[in-house]
Write a protein that binds this DNA or RNA. Structure first.
Lengths: 243, 243
DNA sequence: CGAGGGTTTGAAGTGCATCAAATAGTGTGG
DNA sequence: CCACACTATTTGATGCACTTCAAACCCTCG
């Protein structure tokens, strides 16, 4: 895909002047990352921010006692690293490719300058950060109040395509986007608990699971079960990835 | 305190032109809230954002099954509601005074206009949101990996005044900022668990507790215990309230 | 002094983690 | 195309952590 086409998919660049978009394109370079490789580490100076062209990237930290906290798992059209612009100017997590990944890499200095010179970008940035914050608030809420099967249910619901939301269309089969251990860690539980949580959902809601493919026979059955412990019912647009 | 003096304490208004500051002052009004009263509710149109002059405010949501998720508890010099500016333009939580509280109320339209016209404000906003995001990331990490006593320990450490950080000065007695039930809920646990967590800390670290006053005899003893399950050791400035 | 909220303590039950082992799936080289 | 090795996932058994429910306690304020 054209670099400029890719950038247009990213909220940060919504409605910006063509000239400015070209400026970003000129300063963007492509970076190939093999599965398992690190892209950056905590306390690295944030010289670049990244947009994912293809593949999957996890953002995570390690604790003193050797545990891993997965803060996010990102794919196509997501960006990361742009919030290190202000403050200390360093990343605060590892970024690691969990699949072979192609990134677009843009110097943070270019973004910083653009924010200072162009109000549109600054406002896009604010609005992107505001919606990200909504998402984090939702995540904290879920950690506080949902149990493991409910968190898994919520995760599955977010994979339901818009077309199946309220219409009577049946929900198409859903493939888990990445391996189950990673989903588990992302949801703050062990793989074992994740596996048992899926079984609990099979028993209590109308879903079936074959390998990594989930069939949701009845969305409302699942959302009754999972969203019970949540402040907004599915589809809880605000909390979700990209509305 | 002068309104303008108060505003200068808020990061959002760092380094802004005097004229603009006066503009905010002119549009600010004071609002008194009695303990227990609601300031706003989810889905209310966000016509104002608020700066706390005195008192305490909790931001929370209710789930379908009647549980409460406390997203934040704020006091003097904190602001809230300013992130509802973009997107749906509504609040996403209840705000309730947990003590008699005095607020400064400023129309969001004034802020919005200022952001569009003045780059300084836009950049301050981005930088404030970036540091808030750091904090939320830390909070999610702690929910994923810390147990109850560790979360309580971390909470106590954040109350330690800067002066006692690395110097050999003994740490002054610390009063819990608000009642224990609220602290518990804020940390995602029941009051009973909070009480037992304090006992666990008493047993495992060098702290003593009398009513709502905590004496930390040895900061490193407490941080060894709590920060073990965290990606950064105390003082973990980034995650913490300000700066 | 008594009422009522906030806090602590105890006993019992549930949920999740842990450890160990079985199973299924994937990719390899023969 | 099969056998083997290796990884991901599931299952079982056990223990700890947290919640729940109930009761006691304490402090404050009338």
């Amino acid at each position: 895909m054209e670099t400029s086409e890719l950038l247009k998919q990213v909220h940060l660049f919504d409605d910006i002047e063509d000239e400015l978009l070209q400026h970003f394109c000129k300063n963007a370079s492509t970076r190939q990352i093999k599965k398992g490789e690190h892209i950056c580490a905590p306390d690295d100076t944030a010289r670049h921010f990244y947009i994912i062209k293809s593949g999957w990237v996890k953002l995570f930290r390690n604790t003193m006692d050797g545990q891993e906290a997965v803060l996010d798992v990102l794919t196509i059209n997501s960006s990361f690293g742009e919030t290190a612009l202000f403050g200390k100017g360093t990343y605060s997590w590892y970024a690691e490719a969990v699949e072979d990944t192609t990134l677009l890499s843009i110097p943070t200095s270019v973004l910083k300058q653009a924010i200072e010179d162009h109000n549109t970008i600054a406002i896009n940035m604010i609005s992107a950060m505001a919606s990200h914050r909504q998402r984090l608030d939702g995540e904290i809420e879920r950690f506080m109040l949902q149990n493991a099967p409910q968190r898994v249910g919520c995760f599955l619901l977010k994979l339901v395509p818009n077309s199946a939301w309220d219409s009577d269309e049946p929900c198409p089969p859903i493939s888990l986007p990445y391996n189950k251990s990673l989903v588990a860690t992302r949801l703050g539980m062990t793989p074992e608990t994740f596996s048992r949580a899926l079984n609990a959902l099979k028993k209590n809601t109308k879903i079936t699971i074959k390998r990594s493919v989930v069939e949701i026979e009845d969305i409302s059955s699942l959302s009754n079960y999972a969203c019970q412990a949540c402040s907004s019912f599915f589809p809880c647009k605000d909390d979700c990835e990209d509305e």
